[in-house]
Design a protein around this nucleic acid. Structure first.
Lengths: 107, 107
DNA sequence: TATATATGCAACTATTTGGTTTCGCAAATA
DNA sequence: TATTTGCGAAACCAAATAGTTGCATATATA
């Protein structure tokens, strides 16, 4: 069972949950009200998000408040980092390769 | 069949492919050499990446060079944008909520 | 021309996924 | 105390996924 942050954000419902609780901590019932699927389905999503440590829980009596572990989102940012300098220098790698190949073939 | 960029990067093999061809355009065979799975498996991943428009092809005789569509990676960055101000202000939403609840209960 | 190479595509399979219904438990409330 | 409420977990199911093997096709090359 793969359980990483990229797997976690692959599902649109989970992305929506992340966005929801980023603003304010919420209980599973409150979260589920924003979707068409059952509370149990949302509960399963929350479990996955918890296993990935994107989400943290805080028990308040019989209610559990879920909120975003913002730090974890930085991991996505960190992975993107390697592409940032590529898209900042507006540099087409394929063009370069093909240009080189044409140069080679002329030799 | 979901086919968006988040689905595309969910698979670790596909993330590795993306990283590989970000540096230099490559043919399916050359890409497959870097993995344990078969060329056909890589080919399927490339199809998914192509459908998501993360990857572009350039036919060169019987070879097909795949390279990264860097612009598409910005979409992930764009989604992350909404969390950036949260993680920049070191602000714990859950703490705030719970503090408010305690204040409420004292009234 | 015959053969080797590069590639995509189809069919099949095992596993994972996202959802459901049903249940049990603990906390709140009547 | 009896009932309601909030929640997670288990059992089950259909669909999607990632992989395989086995083709077909087009381009190189001997």
């Amino acid at each position: 069972m793969r359980r990483d942050i990229f797997q976690a954000i692959a599902d649109p419902t989970r992305r929506a949950i992340i966005t929801l609780i980023a603003i304010q901590a919420m209980t599973p019932n409150a979260i589920a009200e924003n979707f068409n699927s059952t509370r149990q389905a949302i509960s399963k999503h929350l479990r996955i998000l918890t296993e990935c440590e994107i989400v943290k829980q805080e028990q308040q009596g019989r209610e559990i408040y879920y909120s975003l572990e913002v730090e974890k989102m930085k991991e996505i940012d960190k992975w993107l980092e390697q592409f940032r300098n590529i898209w900042e220098t507006n540099f087409n790698q394929l063009d370069v390769l093909l240009a080189n190949m044409k140069k080679q073939s002329k030799k």
